[in-house]
C-alpha cells in the first residue's frame, strides 16, 4: 500500500468509500462469513433506532429544560445554575457520562435515553435562559403595564423573541445526541454504532458505511435546525444584518484607517 504513493492511497481510499456506500444498500457476508450483514433493511433498522432514541432524548430534554429555563429567565433568577450547567456539560466528556450511566445504572434503552437526555439538557437550558434574559426589559415592563399576565408575557413576548436562540440550543443538542448515540450498542441498544463497535462482524466496510450514514444524518439535522432557526427569527430582527453592514461605514471616527 505504501509503495504506490499518493495515487494508490487515493484509489484504495476511494474503494473503501464505495464499498462503504455499497454496504448500505446491499447485504454482504460478515467478516467470518457466517451471516449476511448490511443492506438497506439492516442499516435502515439501525438508522431508525438511532433516530428514535435521539429524538426521544432531545424531545424530553426540551420538555424538561425549556419551561424551567423560560421561568428562570423570566424571573432573572438562577443565572448561576443556567450558566454552570453548560460549563459542566462542556467539561464532562460525553463518553464519560455514558460510561457512568451504563456502569452504575445498567444497560438498555431507557438508561441510554437518560444518558442522552442528560447530554441534551445543558445547551437547551443555557441558550433559552440567555435568550430570555436578552429580551429588552423595557419591552417586558411595557407589556406588564398593558396588563399582560406573567404567563402571557412569557408566551407572547419572551418566547417568540428567544426562539431563534432556543433553536440554536436544540440544534447543538441534537447534533451531540446523534453523535453520542453511536455508542448505544455499549449500552445494549442497536444503533448505527453497531457496525462500528462490532468491527469483527461487520468489517471495516461496515464501519465506513455506518459512519457515512451517521455523518449525513447529523449534517441534515444540523442544516434542518439551522433553517428552522432562521425561519423562527421574527421579521423585525432580520433587518439587523443590513444594519450591521451599514454600520461598517457609519461612525467615521470609529472606523479603521482608510489607508490606500
Amino acid at each position: 500500500m505504501a509503495q504506490g504513493g499518493g495515487g494508490v492511497i487515493l484509489a484504495s481510499a476511494l474503494t473503501d468509500f464505495t464499498d462503504g456506500v455499497r454496504f448500505i444498500f446491499q447485504a454482504r457476508e460478515s467478516s467470518a462469513g457466517t451471516v449476511q450483514v448490511g443492506g438497506l433493511n439492516e442499516v435502515g433498522h439501525m438508522a431508525g433506532n438511532h433516530l428514535l432514541v435521539s429524538s426521544l432524548a432531545v424531545a424530553i430534554a426540551i420538555a424538561v429544560a425549556l419551561p424551567i429555563a423560560l421561568v428562570l429567565g423570566h424571573k432573572g433568577r438562577g443565572e448561576f445554575i443556567a450558566v454552570s450547567t453548560s460549563n459542566i456539560g462542556r467539561a464532562v466528556p460525553s463518553l464519560a457520562i455514558i460510561a457512568f450511566f451504563v456502569a452504575f445504572l445498567g444497560t438498555g434503552f431507557t438508561n441510554l435515553c437518560f444518558a442522552l437526555i442528560l447530554l441534551a439538557v445543558p445547551p437547551i437550558l443555557t441558550n433559552t435562559y440567555v435568550a430570555v434574559r436578552q429580551v429588552d426589559r423595557d419591552l417586558v415592563d411595557a407589556a406588564r403595564g398593558q396588563g399582560l399576565s406573567e404567563g402571557q408575557i412569557i408566551r407572547t413576548i419572551e418566547l417568540p423573541l428567544a426562539l431563534p436562540t432556543i433553536f440554536g440550543g436544540i440544534r447543538l443538542s441534537s447534533v451531540n445526541v446523534l453523535a453520542t448515540a453511536i455508542i448505544g450498542p455499549l449500552a445494549g441498544y442497536e444503533t448505527l454504532g453497531t457496525p462500528i463497535l462490532s468491527l469483527n462482524v461487520y468489517g471495516f466496510t461496515g464501519a465506513i458505511g455506518a459512519a457515512i450514514v451517521v455523518a449525513l444524518m447529523t449534517l441534515v439535522a444540523d442544516a434542518g435546525f439551522a433553517g428552522v432557526q432562521r425561519l423562527s427569527t421574527p421579521k423585525g430582527l432580520k433587518v439587523v444584518k443590513g444594519d450591521r453592514r451599514r454600520m461598517r461605514f457609519r461612525p467615521p471616527s470609529q472606523r479603521s484607517a482608510q489607508s490606500p
Binding site: P252, A257, Q258, S259, P260
Partner: peptide, 13 residues
C-alpha cells in the same frame, strides 16, 4: 471637520 482633519495625515485620502 473630521474628514478635513484626517486628510492631513492621510487617514483619509
Amino acid at each position: 471637520k473630521t474628514t478635513a482633519m484626517r486628510m492631513v495625515n492621510r487617514m483619509i485620502d
